[in-house]
Every structure is written in C-alpha cells, then in structure tokens.
Write a protein that binds this DNA or RNA. Structure first.
Length: 255
DNA sequence: ATGGTGGCGCGGCCA
C-alpha cells in the first residue's frame, strides 16, 4: 500500500500537478492539505475518472483537507473532539483495512503570537484525539503538514532557525508527544540523503538553494511501522512550473 | 537586505 501526503497550496491552481503526479506515482492514498476551496467547488470528476474515491473538508480561501483513495473511505470525522474550530484542518477516515488521520497543523505565524498559542493548543487536543484513535485502531497513519521540523537534521540552517516558529522547543515537544503515543516517523526508519526537506519558501530562491525544512510527515502506529518498506520525499513536483511550496512525501507498506 | 514570493481576490491576510 502506497500512501502520500502533499500540501498543494490551492487545489484549484495545482490540480494539473496533482493529476499528473497521481498518474505517474499511482498511490493508493493521497492526503491533501491547503486545498483552499469550499466543498461544492471540489474538482471531483477528475479523481473519480481515475478510479479514486474522495473525502474532503473544505473551506473558502484558507486551509481545507482531502483524502484521495483507491479504497472506499468510511467513518469520516472532520472535528477534533471537544475542540471547537471553524478552520478545516482535520480529516479522519477508515479505508483498506487501516485508519488515516490527515492533518494541516496551524503554521503558528510567529513565536509568542496568538496564532502560535492556537497552534500549541490545537496540537495538545490533536494529541488526545490520536491517543483515543490508537486505542481503537492499531493500524493508524497520521500524516500531513505538521508545520514542525522535528530536529535540527530537518533544517537547512539550524543556527538561523533556533527558537523560530516551526522549530521552537514547545513545537518540537508537541511533536515528540505525538511520537510518545507510539507513533513512528516513517521517514527516519530508513537511511536518507542529507538535507532532505519537504518545504521551501517561495522567496529568495529557497528551492534552488535547497533552503528547506522537513515539516510534512507520515507517522505510523507500531503495527504499521513494522510493515513500512520505504519512505521518501519526491522533489520532482517542486521543480515544475508554478509549484506548491511543498512537495509530496510517500510511504510504502507491505503485507 | 526586517526584504523577498505566491494564493486569494482586489486591500490585506496568510503562509
């Protein structure tokens, strides 16, 4: 089973990229973030034509998440229990014998800002949600744009990023508390090229200079992590014309 | 270089 995550920064703009990439990579499941369109505008036909099924929780202008899957998507949830949030950042589904939680973690803007504290509160509630999900779903994947670089190895210039949003100690502690639920960062199961990143700022030629961060992740429960056969970042879509600032992360699971 | 680019939508917010 081949599973991927991609923050597309507007599905309307990126639809040709997403379809080209699906046709080339043929994943069983793709989790999308920042689709930035309301549910009635979701471009469903192009996915259905390709034999994919859909679930989405959209929002006009900002946020919005979706799951594209070869197998039927059931038991959908779009809310974090006991955490009221109008922002569409969460999509849970069961499919193909596993459970999937697609997350678009708040960016946090700037350490100490209102958005930063919203991010930390959001992560705390999501952590409790995942704890509950794991109790009922031993085969769980949590994936998406976490907006956290877990370690200095995930940062092009750790010195410049010390204490900055996406890298601050409270954010990294929140990420560690997710792993402490017994989730595994699939990317780090395997040896990886140095300077592997999933996001590059549009500004200052960030991609051309590989000034990136690894902030998009695929976390697997212990049962699933034991079946993980590969995990990689696909930089190719970031080289295409008018790209998203993120590129896909892919994990493959065996029997 | 307190800049820079991109999406949304048409001024300013968000990333």
């Amino acid at each position: 089973m081949k599973i991927a995550t991609w923050n597309v920064n507007s599905l309307r703009v990126r639809l040709p990229h997403v379809l080209t990439w699906l046709d080339a990579e043929q994943p069983d499941l793709l989790a999308l973030q920042e689709i930035k369109l309301p549910d009635p505008d979701f471009p469903a036909a192009e996915f259905l034509q390709r034999g994919y099924q859909l679930a989405f929780s959209g929002q006009k202008t900002y946020n919005g998440v979706a799951i594209v899957s070869r197998t039927p998507l059931t038991a959908l949830q779009t809310e974090i229990p006991a955490f009221s949030d109008p922002q569409r950042r969460v999509l849970f589904a069961e499919t193909g014998g596993i459970a999937v939680l697609n997350l678009y973690v708040p960016n946090g803007s700037e350490v100490g800002s209102e958005k930063y504290f919203y991010k930390l509160a959001w992560l705390k509630h999501v952590c409790e949600f995942i704890r509950t999900l794991l109790a009922g779903h031993p085969r769980l994947v949590v994936l998406g744009d976490f907006n956290i670089a877990p370690a200095d190895a995930d940062v092009h210039d750790p010195g410049a990023w010390v204490g900055q949003v996406l890298c601050s100690a409270p954010e990294r502690a929140a990420f560690a508390s997710l792993l402490a639920l017994d989730l595994v960062d699939c990317f780090r199961i395997f040896p990886q090229p140095a300077n592997s990143y999933s996001w590059w700022d549009y500004r200052a030629s960030g991609f051309q200079r590989n000034l990136g961060l690894r902030i998009d992740h695929i976390l697997a429960s212990m049962d699933l992590a034991a079946k993980c056969r590969a995990c990689r970042i696909d930089r190719v879509p970031r080289t295409w014309e008018r790209p998203s600032d993120h590129t896909p992360v892919i994990a493959e699971f065996g029997d």
